[in-house]
């Protein structure tokens, strides 16, 4: 009844054109060596974006650089004042890390909402950042947690504040030959409360129509000491909503003017009409999720 796979001989000729260059460095050192000797490399992390955008034209890619075997890029290190997450940490692993759930609950929730189980198995935090989609699910949470990214090339290493990393839809400050090594998130003493909201046409496998991350620190009298808010899918880049943050700071729980904050948020975004919603719809939903996020966080 069952056709054993070993009954079928390998048919290796059916897989297309002949080999080009495929680099799989096993360490940062090997990676730097490859970067030094090659220009124009197509970098693959989890592949969940790259293989989609190059569907049916994968054979056109000349030189692959696969980061999958670099163990240093898969490390998660916790220090007293910061946590470092390697760029090749998958969403699935991010979801399972107890420390992330405890210290950065919005990042945990966003990773849990991202794609599908299959996508979370392969997709990486570094890939989500480097793809730089305004709809990247992990980006608003990383922005409100003041994340920085460490970028390396064969020559140097630099640290960039994520707030200045994105320059447009799918554009960022990375230059040819630069690789995102890790994400650094400061650990703050203040206890904060956060909310993650993702609005889309279905729950799984959806590119958000709009998303929001809000993180608030209350002082002992329940006055808002610090407020960070970011919205995704509503501007050319995932955006910190500083106007709303300014209104929130200094307010007490019952004095928050939800409508004023929501209006400020709506004013700062610049959404477009696309397949996932019109600009008008997004502005309206931005106001509503701002209000519901505030209500949730102050409960």
């Amino acid at each position: 009844m069952k056709k054993q796979s070993k009954d079928v001989k390998n048919r290796p000729t059916s897989s297309g054109r002949d080999s080009k260059e495929y680099f799989r460095p096993k360490s940062k050192k090997e990676l730097k060596e490859i970067l030094k000797n090659n220009d124009i490399l197509t970098i693959i992390a989890g592949g969940t974006d790259l293989l989609v955008s190059n569907y049916q034209k994968l054979y056109k890619i000349d030189k692959w650089l696969d980061l999958d075997l670099i163990d240093e890029f898969k490390e998660v290190k916790i220090f007293d004042d910061k946590i470092e997450i390697g760029s090749m940490v998958t969403h699935d692993r991010l979801v399972r890390l107890e420390k992330i759930k405890e210290l950065f609950p919005i990042l945990h929730s966003a990773a849990l909402d991202l794609g599908s189980p299959q996508i979370r198995s392969r997709g990486t935090i570094g890939g989500n950042i480097v793809t730089s989609s305004p709809a990247g699910d992990l980006l608003p949470p990383l922005l409100v947690y003041d994340a920085e990214v460490v970028i390396i090339s064969d020559q140097e290493e630099r640290k960039v504040d994520l707030n200045t990393f994105f320059t447009g839809p799918k554009k960022n400050v990375l230059k040819e030959g630069e690789i995102l090594e890790k994400i650094v998130i400061p650990l703050k003493k203040d206890k904060s409360r956060g909310v993650w909201k993702k609005v889309g046409k279905r729950k799984a496998l959806v590119i958000s129509s709009i998303s929001l991350a809000l993180n608030i620190v209350f002082d002992k009298d329940n006055i808002i000491k610090k407020a960070k808010m970011a919205i995704g899918s509503a501007a050319p880049v995932p955006l910190r909503i500083k106007s709303a943050e300014e209104i929130l700071i200094g307010q007490s729980l019952d004095s928050i003017d939800y409508i004023k904050v929501a209006k400020a948020a709506a004013k700062q975004i610049s959404p477009i009409d696309d397949i996932r919603g019109t600009a008008e719809y997004r502005i309206s939903v931005a106001k509503n999720i701002t209000k519901s996020a505030l209500k949730e966080v102050t409960k």
Binding site: S15, R24, G47, D66, R122
Partner: peptide, 11 residues
């Protein structure tokens, strides 16, 4: 679980 259309054979 992975979608085998989004994994390179080499990987």
């Amino acid at each position: 679980v992975v979608t085998s259309c989004l994994v390179l054979a080499v990987q």
